[in-house]
């Protein structure tokens, strides 16, 4: 089932184009990783999805309804955690969680208390005294304790400690198993790799890559570390070989995934003593899109 369908979405702030023809779909039971550098339009996309910003052009449908006109209907089935959780300094964490839950529907007190316990949050403290991580916990508990169908999480773990991060990841996997849909915007690529079925990369307001991780890996490079009996030569003449470094352990380099067969054939002629390979990482894919690109000032004022 299609949970989110964004078609040709454009959003302008005055003369600045924050989003330019974004297309994106997310289905039920799917975890989408939404990645991109600061100011690339992640938060703007999320705010348009939530009907907080009005699109300039295009169509944005959530649960098949219009994100702007039917915002309230849609939000009854959405749980959202903003990237920067700004809370009311004079309310306690417990009060805010209850408020957030009640604005969606009824409060499941058991689930709420369990989560408060698990995330080690003191709900009697005023939000003024919470650290960034604790404010984020308030947002996460309120989201996870709800029975929403779609979870929109904007960099939800940026202030959490590794224990809490792992707890969060467990909960995301549980939600996926229940068939919920999760829209996860993140900088932490290892987390996206661990959690997400599909990835969309946004840069300067345009989606430049999207697909399942397996699909995208075709676009990435495999790391190889090779030691041969006779010195390995000619490697740099091949297309698709990058970043060749020599060390006492052998020769380390990266190979475009589609060239790997050709390269292995070549090096086997030199008598392989040792070969280690590391799988392609999302980080490499990400870096490939950004490295060498002209430095653009990240101008999105509403992003991050």
């Amino acid at each position: 089932m299609e949970m989110i369908r964004i078609t040709n979405l454009t959003k302008k702030f005055g003369s600045f184009t924050a989003l330019n023809g974004v297309d994106l779909t997310v289905n039920g039971g799917e975890v989408l990783g939404f990645i991109g550098p600061n100011g690339s339009g992640k938060t703007t996309t999320i705010r348009v999805l939530l009907g907080i910003l009005k699109k300039t052009e295009g169509d944005v449908a959530v649960f098949g309804k219009d994100a702007w006109a039917d915002a309230v209907e849609i939000h009854k089935r959405i749980a959202y955690v903003p990237g920067d959780v700004n809370l009311w300094p004079n309310l306690t964490g417990g009060e805010v969680i209850d408020l957030f839950l009640s604005l969606r529907g009824t409060i499941d007190t058991d689930k709420r208390d369990q989560l408060i316990e698990k995330f080690h949050l003191d709900p009697t403290k005023k939000c003024r005294t919470y650290s960034k991580g604790n404010r984020q916990k308030v947002g996460l508990i309120a989201a996870l304790a709800s029975d929403a169908d779609l979870f929109i999480l904007d960099e939800p773990t940026s202030g959490l400690d590794p224990l809490m991060e792992r707890l969060f990841q467990e909960h995301v996997n549980e939600l996926r198993a229940e068939g919920k849909c999760i829209f996860l915007s993140s900088h932490i690529l290892s987390e996206v790799e661990k959690l997400c079925d599909r990835v969309a990369i946004i840069r300067e307001g345009e989606i430049i890559e999207s697909g399942s991780l397996a699909d995208l890996r075709h676009l990435t490079r495999t790391h190889l570390l090779v030691k041969t009996k006779t010195p390995l030569t000619d490697l740099t003449f091949f297309d698709g070989v990058h970043e060749v470094h020599e060390s006492e352990n052998g020769l380390s380099f990266q190979v475009d995934s589609e060239k790997i067969d050709e390269i292995i054939r070549h090096i086997s002629r030199f008598g392989i003593e040792k070969i280690e390979s590391a799988p392609p990482k999302l980080e490499d894919l990400f870096m490939r899109h950004y490295e060498g690109k002209k430095e653009v000032p990240s101008g999105g004022e509403t992003d991050d």
């Binding site: 309310l91 417990g94 805010v96 408020l99 009697t124």
Partner: peptide, 26 residues
């Protein structure tokens, strides 16, 4: 002294109007 507050929200708070009232109570 910074007092600790309530663990759960009162019924009044659980509504936008209640929240507006509560935030400006003092």
């Amino acid at each position: 002294p910074e007092r600790t507050g309530k663990r759960t929200a009162s019924r009044l708070l659980l509504h936008p109007l209640g929240l507006a009232l509560r935030l400006q109570r003092t």
